[in-house]
Design a protein around this nucleic acid. Structure first.
Length: 244
DNA sequence: AAAAGATTCAACCGCCTGTAT
DNA sequence: TATACAGGCGGTTGAATCTTT
């Protein structure tokens, strides 16, 4: 399977690279205001930009999109990043999805410049200990439609335990907003009683994560195309968080 | 004041996966 | 079923900026 890479795209005649100008930003913003996000291949043409689709997408997501928060990370944001990183590893987009206004790139940059430095300065012994204690759940989050064959394979491959094969559309299970917020409150406060609540997975893109080594069970959907896993059946996820 | 080193962060790259044909 | 295309992701790079000597 051959995919068109940004590099190959950039080889196209007249495709610009490097820093964006104010004029380009304006063109991109106007275009997305008019046509909406998505259809990134059409965006450069519609906007009159000599940029590849990926460059446009990245510029929008990381810089031009409204409600993007700039400046210093606040203490609670840093705390959340640390916790989520322990939980998810370098799944920056998943982490960013839970920190309003912050982009995956921002968080990744912050982590690479601040947190890795802290790990180094904390001394070899501590990092060694951490490496042993921290058991990062590193699933492969992917956006899967309910029709995806892969989804069936993934779920059935771990069957024999508590998993179900979703041959038929699962019954939607209501997922009240307050449950989600309490889950996040729980993540910050680590209140014992809250941990049996539902564990939401990326509430924006209908994305869920799961891997073959992931001991959760698919219970249903929040709405069509959105799956989640019950926190209580998440293995010892919370124990992992606490252990660090 | 200037050079060297360190840090930050926007942007690029290559890869993976889903979807359409 | 095979192929091409599109969307998305994490890792990496390099220029700009800041700090130290």
């Amino acid at each position: 399977m051959v995919s068109a890479t940004a590099g190959k795209e950039a080889q196209n005649l007249g495709v610009r690279k490097g820093a964006w100008t104010q004029e380009e930003d304006d063109l991109l913003r106007k275009c997305i205001d008019k046509y909406g996000e998505g259809k990134w291949t059409q965006i450069p043409l519609r906007a009159g930009l000599k940029r590849c689709r990926k460059s446009c997408r990245l510029r929008w997501l990381n810089y031009l999109r409204p409600n993007i928060k700039k400046g210093e990370f606040e203490e609670d944001e840093i705390d959340l990043i640390i916790r989520l990183h322990k939980l998810l590893g370098n799944r920056w987009s998943l982490i960013a999805g839970r920190i309003p206004g912050r982009t995956a790139n921002d968080i990744k940059n912050y982590w690479n410049s601040h947190m890795t430095k802290n790990l180094k300065t904390s001394g070899p012994d501590q990092t060694k200990t951490k490496a042993i204690c921290t058991k990062v759940i590193k699933p492969k989050p992917r956006t899967l439609s309910m029709n995806s064959q892969k989804l069936k394979v993934l779920v059935s491959s771990t069957a024999g335990q508590t998993h179900k094969v979703l041959d038929t559309p699962p019954t939607p299970i209501p997922f009240p907003a307050e449950e989600e917020s309490s889950w996040w409150k729980c993540l910050l406060t680590e209140e014992e009683g809250e941990r049996e609540s539902l564990l939401p997975l990326n509430n924006e893109g209908g994305e869920f994560f799961m891997s073959s080594g992931f001991e959760g069970s698919v219970e249903g959907t929040r709405k069509e195309g959105e799956l989640f896993v019950r926190g209580s059946e998440f293995g010892n996820l919370w124990d992992l968080l606490e252990a660090t």
